[in-house]
Amino acid sequence: MTSPLRVRGRAWVFGDEINTDDMYPGFAMKLPVPEAAQHMFDATRPGWPRLVEPGDIVVAGRNFGLGSSRACAELFVHLGISCLIAEQYNSLFHRNALNYGLPALVVPMARQLIDEGDVLAVDAAAGLLRNETRGVDHQVEPLPEFVTELIEGGGLISRLEAGGYLDRVDATSTTGGKS
C-alpha cells in the first residue's frame, strides 16, 4: 500500500456543487496551510477537519469544486485525505487535485454506491473501487497514464524539481490560489 494510487479509508459523503469557498474560506487565505485546513467546510460542516483520519476519502456529487483556483486540494492533502471520488468535477478543481498528487476519480452514481462511513479500497490506476463495508467491487474509469505518472512522482512540484526547473528546498507547503 505504498503507492499513492492504492489507498484505503473511510468515506465522507458530500452533496452536489460543493464549492471552493466552502472548502477554503476567503479569510483562510490569510493563514498558513495547516491553519487554513482547519477551516474546511466551516459553514456547512463545522468541525469536520478534526474528525478526519489519515487515509479518509472524500466523496461528492456533481460539479465538485465549482469556483476558485485556490488550492483546496492542498488542504485535503494536509488533513491526510487520500483520494477524492466524485460524480463530476469542475475541471479547474480536478486538475488542482491531481497536481497536488491527490488521486481524484470520476465515479458516476458514486453516492448510490457509497454511504458515509463505508470503508473503501481504491486502486486509481486499475480503476478498482471496493466498498468493503458493503462487500461490493466496482470497476470504474481509471486515471489516465499521464496522470498516474504525475501522482506516483509526487505531483507537479516534484516533477518540476526533477526537471531542474526549481531549486530544491526542504518540503514545505506549496501553492497559492485565489478567489
Binding site: S69, A71, R95, L160, Y165, T175, G176
Partner: peptide, 14 residues
C-alpha cells in the same frame, strides 16, 4: 482560463 497555481508555475518554467 484560470488554472491552479502549480500549473501557472509550470507554464512559467516550460
Amino acid at each position: 482560463r484560470g488554472l491552479g497555481p502549480l500549473e501557472i508555475l509550470q507554464m512559467i518554467c516550460t
